[in-house]
Design a protein around this nucleic acid. Structure first.
Lengths: 196, 196
DNA sequence: CTTCTGAAGCTAACGCGGTTAGCCTTCAGC
DNA sequence: GCTGAAGGCTAACCGCGTTAGCTTCAGAAG
């Protein structure tokens, strides 16, 4: 093999760093090539298309986010696990808004798409965390969807600059976590009463 | 004035219908022109650019969504208002995913952008609804942000096909509404205890 | 009824960005 | 040293947004 300056992985990593800077929508092959000190067409020796590149960023992001969330939850349970996992996710999105946008923009390309196990790992972490609340089994799926909705919604709204008022966003997020925690504990206590 | 087949408003309306069909990302001037029985450059007699067109769709969407939410909340209070408002918003996003995507993609272009009052109307409706819960004033902003996060998160995840498992999404949404309702009522009862 | 005007359509053409084709250089392994 | 492929480059293609400039026709003005 001749000199291996660039590889698919290194191009993906550079592209991920780039989208975090300039925004996922502003990703362009020309800009990426410039960053890598290379002419645009050369990138096609390592990636087949911009779409594939975006997909690689998405897989990377989902994997990294999954690691962060797992590490946050690891060794904790109940309220602590919820708080640590949620904070880990929010921190990841704040630090890597472009990657997160890439992950949201992508669809699995097929049954053996590595994006699928990567996102399943995230879901598994949340499920493990939720199981600590001892919810009624029939409610777990709803709790999971509600949890995903709040966290995803908060993260995207924050990334989009959706929280204008000058009240502390950090404070709002801890309030949100507390709100969810209390609801989950009440749900666990009252069983399926919570639904009707 | 000569024959007025197309107007800025009619072009915007057609574009809005188009993005709901093909997705906001797939909006193109060529496709829109074809739908309107016109050649692409002719559109520029009515809109200055594709970016401006997207922005017009966003304003339209925010206005329509604001109307739907207000109508849902109107005449109700407490749990009923929350449920009706939330259902109205979800219904709007399901029926108009492209418009909703346009609204999320846009940024105010300046201080007199009509998008600003349109989104403020939405926020005002939610604020009116929340006031029925009699929360501690210091908590209202956090409750508002939490509410926006869940609803926005759920709507976007659903639109993106993020809920894979074959459990009823409708049921999850009513569960979510109930979850929020109970949390808000508990927060009202316990005052600022909920935050710490 | 004719003439004038301008809005709204059209064709031609530009520019940018993604992509492909094909050439050239370089180095790993024989 | 030879060879072959990896990885870079230039040139060129293509689609899409956009602009320039011509044409047409509805309605106002005389």
């Amino acid at each position: 093999m001749p000199k291996a300056r660039l590889t698919p992985a290194s191009v993906t990593e550079a592209a991920a760093a780039l989208v975090d800077e300039v925004g996922f929508d502003n990703l362009s092959m020309g800009l990426l090539a410039e960053r890598l000190g290379v002419k645009t067409p050369s990138l096609y020796k390592h990636v087949t298309s911009q779409a594939e590149l975006a997909h690689r960023i998405a897989v990377l992001a989902m994997t990294e986010a999954g690691d962060a969330i797992r590490d946050g939850i690891q060794g904790r349970s109940g309220s602590d696990a919820l708080a640590a996992g949620a904070q880990a996710m929010r921190a990841y999105v704040r630090e890597h808004p472009g990657r997160y946008a890439a992950a949201n923009a992508t669809r699995p390309t097929g049954p053996d798409d590595p994006f699928i196990p990567a996102s399943e790992r995230v879901l598994a972490s949340w499920a493990a965390m939720l199981s600590g609340y001892g919810l009624d089994p029939g409610q777990e799926i709803h709790a999971m969807r509600t949890l995903r909705s709040v966290l995803h919604g908060f993260a995207t709204l924050e990334a989009a600059g959706g929280f204008q008022i000058d009240a502390s966003v950090d404070e709002s997020f801890t309030w949100l976590i507390n709100f969810i925690d209390q609801g989950l504990r009440a749900g666990a206590a009252s069983g399926s009463d919570a639904v009707r």
